[in-house]
Design a protein around this nucleic acid. Structure first.
Lengths: 112, 112
DNA sequence: CGGTTAATTAACTGACTGGTTTAATGTAGG
DNA sequence: CCTACATTAAACCAGTCAGTTAATTAACCG
């Protein structure tokens, strides 16, 4: 069913095209044609990606004449970041172990 | 194709069952049966979820007699967090606007 | 050895994804 | 009004996903 919002947001982020679109929108509003330009895919394909982003709440769209300008709406990313942050202690511990290991190597220790 | 690692990680996180499994593993190693217990789904289904997590590099599995204990491996989450962090300025700006709006409301302003 | 437990593989299903092409819609502007 | 442009909708396709049940592998234990 995939109706919880965190799942929807992560799923939206699980595609390089959509992440690139968000990166582009971080620089300001853009039309669908603008957004589609860098990609080797049809306009409807990009339109579908935008719909996915919109359903995830990551973009909003206005109306300016025949254009439908897209704006970044990063709020849902805050939830995603908050979820990830609960694991920061784990990856930092892991990196600390790596640091320690490397410095042991420099000192010539071989305890593994 | 979905071969880039960030996409694989986000896709792995886009499922509440898999996020729950990671949360459980944050408390320590667990066997497949342990992990499956809370869910109303068959063991093979959980086994598949574990394979997705493993391919995303989010868990590692050992061998202890007939058990295959799973351990959390949070490192790939660091990349995801780093990606998200580029958007922090946007959601914080958004929340600041909300704060401002609320404090304006408290002061009785009505500029929207 | 034989049985039990842990876990995975295999084969299948229904739903969703990401893409296509073609057709429709809405709006601007001569 | 007619045409061109921006965008979306429809219909379709191949591949993946999340789940199932049934069968298989692997290791322990009496």
């Amino acid at each position: 069913m995939m109706s919880d919002s965190l799942s929807t947001v992560f799923a939206a982020l699980a595609d390089p095209t959509r992440r690139a679109i968000l990166a582009r929108l971080a620089g300001g509003e853009a039309t669908v044609n603008d957004l589609a330009a860098p990609f080797a895919m049809s306009l409807p394909a990009v339109s579908k990606h935008l719909k996915v982003l919109e359903r995830a709440g990551l973009i909003t769209r206005g109306r300016d004449a025949q254009y439908r300008p897209c704006r970044l709406h990063a709020d849902p990313l805050a939830d995603a970041a908050r979820w990830l942050d609960r694991y920061r202690v784990f990856w930092e511990a892991s990196f600390d172990r790596l640091d320690e290991h490397l410095s042991d190597l420099r000192k010539g220790k071989t305890d593994d």
